[in-house]
Design a protein around this nucleic acid. Structure first.
Length: 936
RNA sequence: GGGCGAUUAACUCAGCGGCUAGAGUGCCACCCUUACAAGGUGGAAGUCAGGGGUUCGAAUCCCUUAUCGCCCACCA
């Protein structure tokens, strides 16, 4: 039997096999009709752009723990896997490839061809991600794997967009985007890096109309003054507030622009106290324009290629650098340039083209947040959704509380294309509805039935042209075709990736259809994610969940630790410091990886993981040794101690459990096991995965291997008791495997099969129940049996441990050969049983002869006080060693006595501290004094 | 600049008002003892970031400084 099992733990040989069995037997497959309370997690879909790193590994390990634990508890469990299409990042990667390999831009090959290529790319890399999750051991229902750009998600997106559009919650507005003039595309904030640029600060004089005075503004971008629409001062700045309401004459253009007060924009202590306002080309100034509510104009002076447009008058057509130079020249000629000084300022650059980005005014679609955010705030305030740890709710509440409208359009080709067809308004202007208003109107070329499937909204990008946007309910391609034939043009933009991931918890379950899955598993149970996307993702899922489903998408949000590299930088795809979990699985095993990450999943602190490359070029870390060593420990004790002893030719057959034949160590380990189950349950209920891992580790390594196994060895040789010990060993191993399976599924499952062969029926009724299950993944989670808790045995065995350690310490100090037996006389303390003494002898390789009275300790002999009694010994005593030992101990005791006396001498302590603490201090003092006295 | 968190042994982290502050790794000594050298036994190692305060009692609570991480805002 043991010949089939490798002597050392070799993860590669067992992981694939166990996973194959789970898949073959469809252990992960969920059935909404199956019994059990629903328990559901939807995976935070990883971006398709890259391979998973250790941050994903911890995220998914923790989800798998929850899923496996609930599956064992009898819940009807579903874990839905999936991948995010990650609009910007993915398109950027494929465009970059296109450029490098074929020297083509996306415009060269066109929209359809580009999207086709991205799909090919997605196929390849999406599969790789799913493969990584499988290696990790994730028990997802793979048949339900989803992609945020798949057919079902597309329907959910279309349906949601249409609903929002019809309800007037989507509107068309202006927004400053980061414009890459080189690539002629907008880019996200994430793709911008700031570089300090040496430039000048120009001080320009603006004449104040109807006076002979000037205001001086400072700017690093003089060419943008062509788009100035106001000059702002602080309302309490006595130098300038007299001018509020007057006008300034904008040099070079002669335009008169208002002098306004804006106390947010202007810091009167900075510079001249006067700020030029260019709403179309500066984010702060744009905010001023919004605050001023139509009192000032907004003028765009740039073409998409970065040249000055017709609004720039005689500068039209010039590139921005040339225009800047010319503007400065002209100002100088007019005598309006007061000063030019050297200046350094950070300038945003596009990560993709490495050129400076331009804030650029463009038409975008927005979701109105006010109505959607309020219920999402309320469910968290009311505790319907709880964050773990609790403090993270604050970030959610404060961000959502701002209720800033959500810009949802992206100038990309990869994504859900915005389902709006835009028409020029043909009716009389007088009848035109006002801006951004949702209107009811029937299109003449649609049937009444078809007209019910569309929603119309007015958008007005210019003064003299009025456009309407028409959105179509999903599933009516014929209407879309009719709209296009009638001259409508579909908006070329796509939706923000987060728009589709916001629907993830219900779209993955089948929404907008009313499916059995949706009815069974929505709301889902818990969301497990990292704190950086609490706003981007979590908040939006809550909003859309409440909007579409009228119910929260999940009840708990667990925010886990961030895995950093050795320098304290979070692992990120963009930083390139991510470590592939498969590397660690290859060097240490999946269970070791999972155990170590779980052990690190603490509540507050992010974890640094110094990584190094091994000889094969794999990124790994010594930190995973803890998991590997633990796995090996389990492998050894299970296969070559417990199972071996149960399967030995001479081993006792199963016999009925008879607790009267149990030893102190048996009662103790059974009690300890039940306590450990309690600790694990408590930890998991609060998502304290680290405490759960530690409870398992301490129980298996310290309690079971280090003490109970040692205690079992002599009795296994006693035919009268071997049968009972075997019962206990089998049950404890069984229970431990159940308890640890969620963290380290592969090794526990593999051992489980062997245990089933050797001892299919096992268990200690009322103490450790072991109902049979062919597969551990489907076995019952251990329950706590209060009757197994045995405080008396726990106390007694802890004294045995302490005494044994003290004797081992003594042996070490005297360098006594491990095999050599040493002899003591023992004056037993009260409650020290003969059984305890026998255990101490066995644990320490010593002989203890009980005595009734203290004996003299003449020179050449000595004494030691232990919890189980006072020891007297002589043969090996060396005066110098013993002198040191005793002196050191006396020092300790004296120090202790001093502290304790000091504490008791403090009247405030006696009167204010709880009585039991005062008593405890007194007992400690008495104990220390007694020991000191005995040492002479 | 605002909010949140962190700073405990050489390293990675627990502990979060009351035992002499713990664990794993690393280090030292002894041991291939019949489950395990990926191991066993024992040991050394910490002014709990600095400074103030509250308390009978502070690593733990409050204030403050410094450094780091995340989110948000970034100055004409």
């Amino acid at each position: 039997m043991s010949g089939e099992v490798s002597r050392t733990y070799e993860p590669a040989s067992i992981e694939a096999k166990a996973y194959e069995v789970w898949l073959e037997e469809r252990c992960f497959a969920a059935d909404p009709a199956a019994p059990g309370e629903p328990y559901c997690i939807v995976i935070p879909p990883p971006n398709v752009t890259g391979a998973l790193h250790l941050g994903h590994a911890i995220n998914n390990t923790l989800q798998d723990i929850l899923i496996r634990m609930h599956r064992m508890r009898g819940f009807n469990t579903l874990w839905i896997p999936g991948i995010d299409h990650a609009g910007i990042a993915t398109q950027a990667v494929v465009e970059k490839q296109l450029k490098e390999k074929e020297n083509k831009t996306r415009h060269d090959i066109g929209r359809e061809a580009l999207v086709e290529r991205i799909w090919q790319w997605k196929q390849q890399f999406g599969d790789r991600i799913l493969e990584q999750l499988k290696r990790l051991g994730c028990s997802c229902d793979w048949d339900r794997a989803r992609f945020t750009l798949d057919e079902q998600c597309a329907r959910a997106v279309r349906e949601t967009f249409f609903k929002l559009f019809k309800d007037g919650l989507i509107y068309r507005g202006k927004r400053l985007v980061n414009w890459d003039v080189h690539l002629q595309t907008s880019i996200s904030d994430d793709e911008i890096y700031h570089e300090t640029v040496k430039t000048s600060l120009w001080h320009v004089k603006y004449p104040i109309v109807d006076t002979d005075k000037f205001m001086t503004v400072a700017t690093t971008r003089p060419e943008t003054m062509l788009g100035d629409t106001a000059v702002a001062v602080h309302s309490e700045d006595s130098r300038w507030n007299w001018a509020i309401g007057k006008f300034a004459e904008l040099p070079l253009t002669g335009r008169k622009i208002p002098i306004i007060a804006d106390d947010i924009l202007v810091d009167p202590k900075f510079g001249s106290g006067v700020v030029k306002v260019t709403p179309a080309h500066d984010p702060n100034d744009y905010a001023v324009w919004q605050r001023q509510q139509g009192k000032i104009e907004i003028i765009n002076i740039l073409n998409p290629d970065g040249t000055i447009n017709q609004n720039g008058g005689k500068y039209a057509g010039m590139k921005r650098d040339a225009a800047r130079k010319k503007v400065v020249e002209d100002l100088t000629a007019l005598g309006l340039l007061a000063k030019e000084e050297p200046y350094e300022t950070p300038v945003g650059h596009s990560d993709r083209s490495k050129t400076p980005v331009e804030p650029y005014l463009s038409d975008q679609w927005f979701v109105k947040m006010a109505a959607l955010a309020e219920p999402a705030l309320q469910v968290v305030r009311d505790g319907i959704i709880k964050f773990f740890p609790e403090r993270h709710a604050q970030q959610y509440l404060s961000w959502l509380g701002e209720k800033r409208d959500w810009p949802i359009s992206r100038q990309l080709w990869w994504g859900h294309r915005i389902p709006v067809w835009i028409f020029l308004w043909k009716g009389p202007y007088a009848d035109a509805p006002s801006d951004s208003q949702h209107v009811l109107m029937d299109l003449p070329y649609l049937t009444p039935e078809q007209n019910r499937q569309i929603a119309v909204q007015v958008i007005r990008p210019g003064i003299h042209e009025i456009y309407v946007g028409i959105s179509v309910r999903p599933g009516y391609p014929d209407i879309e075709r009719l709209l296009e034939e009638a001259g409508g043009q579909r908006d070329p933009d796509v939706l923000d990736t987060w728009f589709s991931s916001a629907l993830w918890p219900h779209s993955t379950l089948g929404w907008p259809d009313d499916t059995p899955d949706l009815r069974k598993w929505y709301p889902t149970s818990v969301l497990v994610t990292a704190r950086e996307i609490i706003t981007l993702w979590v908040a939006r899922m809550v909003m859309t969940g409440l909007y579409n489903m009228k119910k929260v998408p999940f009840h708990h949000v667990y925010i886990h630790t961030v895995i950093q590299d050795g320098h304290g930088e979070p692992m990120k795809k963009s930083k390139g410091n991510g470590v592939d979990p498969v590397d660690v699985i290859d060097t240490h095993g999946a269970d070791a990886l999972r155990f170590t990450l779980t052990h690190m999943a603490t509540e507050t602190q992010d974890v640094r993981l110094p990584v190094k490359k091994d000889a094969q070029g794999r990124n790994t870390s010594d930190k995973f040794d803890i998991g590997r060593n633990f796995s090996n420990k389990i492998w050894q004790v299970a296969n070559f101690f417990v199972i071996q002893n149960l399967a030995n030719p001479g081993a006792p057959g199963p016999e009925p459990v008879d607790e009267t034949k149990w030893s102190l160590a048996d009662r103790w380990i059974v009690s300890r096991f039940n306590r450990t189950v309690g600790e694990a349950d408590a930890a998991l209920a609060l998502y304290r995965f680290d405490q759960y891992a530690k409870a398992c580790y301490d129980f298996v390594w310290d309690d079971f291997c280090a003490w109970h196994v040692e205690a079992s060895k002599p009795t296994l040789k006693d035919p009268a008791r071997a049968g009972q010990i075997a019962n206990v060993l089998a049950a404890v191993l069984d229970g431990a495997l159940r308890l640890m399976h969620p963290i380290i599924p592969f090794i526990t499952e593999t051992i489980w099969w062997r245990l089933n062969e050797v001892r299919p029926r096992r268990g200690l009724p009322g103490k450790i129940e072991c109902p049979f299950s062919k597969r551990l993944i489907l076995a019952k989670w251990p329950s706590i049996n209060a009757s197994a808790i045995d405080e008396k045995s726990e106390l007694e065995f802890s004294r045995v441990r302490e005494t044994s350690s003290a004797i081992r310490n003594l042996r070490n100090q005297y360098n006594i050969e491990p095999k050599a037996q040493i002899e003591f006389r023992l004056l037993p303390a009260a409650n020290t049983s003969a059984e305890s003494i026998a255990f101490i002898q066995s644990f320490t390789g010593s002989v203890l002869t009980p005595i009734q009275q203290p004996v003299e300790t003449p020179s050449g002999s000595s004494t030691m006080i232990t919890p189980c009694g006072q020891l007297f010994f002589h043969p090996f005593v060396d005066a110098s060693v013993e002198g040191n030992r005793i002196a050191k101990r006396k020092d300790e005791l004296n120090r202790q006595i001093q502290t304790l006396r000091g504490r008791l001498g403090n009247e405030a302590y006696i009167s204010k501290a709880p009585a039991h603490l005062v008593q405890q201090t007194k007992d400690q003092l008495a104990g220390a004094e007694a020991e000191l006295a005995k040492l002479g």
